Simulated scan of single mutants.
Amino acid sequence: MHLKEHISYCPKCGAKTFSFDKKRFVCSSCQFDLYINASAAVAALILNDNGELLLARRKFDPMKGTLDLPGGFVDVHETAENAIKREIKEELNLTITSLEYFCSFPNTYTFRENDYYTLDLTFICKVESLDDLNVNDDVSAVEFIEVKKIDTTEIGLSSIKTIVSTFQKSYKN
């Protein structure tokens, strides 16, 4: 469900003249604008020494129990690079030593019956060691799967399916 179906009063003047216009809400009483932009999110592609990709199981909805790439939302005033390092430390207790931008894809992230729009920025990450791997936060488990053998139908989020499919096509072991 889009936010436009929930928001009808202007947060500035309180008038019920707040309407959605393509990508923003506009108040015809006070001319207040509220833009609906994509939130930034990050995802990590982490390979082990056998060339298998680390995939996480989602601990919570949306898409609880499905495969995902580890990562999360970028905080306000945080770079994507710092966000991926923070998220990987929080979720997996791993320290990223290097990262390289791979690609980005848009996503509609439905949470508590509201659609939020994200732009998922993906990085190929190297970690200090996998010895301290420990699942926390939004992750219930991890699996290492050969890149070419990943069944993308087990991945819940559409952007992550596209990212993994794109990585599979480009991957040369």
Rank of each mutant, 00 (worst) to 15 (best):
D137Q: 04
D132Y: 00
D21M: 08
S158M: 08
T66F: 03
T17G: 06
R58N: 09
I7A: 12
L67R: 05
S104I: 00
L130I: 02
S98H: 12
E52Y: 01
A40L: 12
R86N: 04
S98D: 12
T118R: 14
I145W: 11
D75R: 14
F60S: 05
M1F: 07
L67N: 07
K172M: 01
L47T: 09
I150M: 09
Y171L: 00
Y117E: 15
N93Y: 03
R57H: 06
I88T: 11
I7K: 07
G65W: 04
V127K: 07
L130S: 00
Y116Q: 11
E78K: 07
S159V: 03
D21S: 13
C30Y: 08
I145S: 07
E154G: 06
R58A: 08
R57V: 10
K16Y: 10
K16C: 04
E5Y: 14
Y109L: 15
E113W: 11
E87I: 00
K59H: 05
S140M: 07
K4F: 14
Y117S: 08
V135I: 09
A83Y: 01
E91Y: 03
V147R: 10
A41H: 10
S104W: 06
T97I: 15
D138T: 10
A141Q: 12
D151Y: 12
F73C: 02
K4S: 15
Y35N: 10
K126S: 12
R86W: 09
K64P: 01
T162V: 03
S29M: 08
S29D: 14
Y101C: 08
I36P: 02
E91M: 06
N93V: 01
L53R: 01
H6Q: 14
L119I: 14
I163Q: 01
D131W: 00
I36S: 04
C10H: 13
T108D: 05
K149R: 13
V127S: 06
E52Q: 14
G72P: 04
K59C: 02
C125N: 05
S8Y: 14
N134T: 02
V76L: 06
S129D: 08
R86Q: 02
S28T: 15
Y9F: 15
V127N: 08
K169P: 03
K161C: 10
Y117V: 04
I150C: 11
L45H: 09
S29K: 14
L55N: 06
F32C: 04
A38C: 08
N107V: 09
G65M: 03
L133V: 01
K149V: 00
S170Y: 00
D68F: 06
I96D: 05
L121I: 15
I155P: 05
T97D: 01
L133P: 01
A40I: 10
K64H: 03
K85L: 01
Y116M: 11
N50F: 02
I96Q: 07
D151S: 10
P62W: 04
T153A: 15
L69W: 03
T79N: 05
A40W: 01
D151Q: 07
V42N: 11
L133N: 04
G14K: 11
K148F: 06
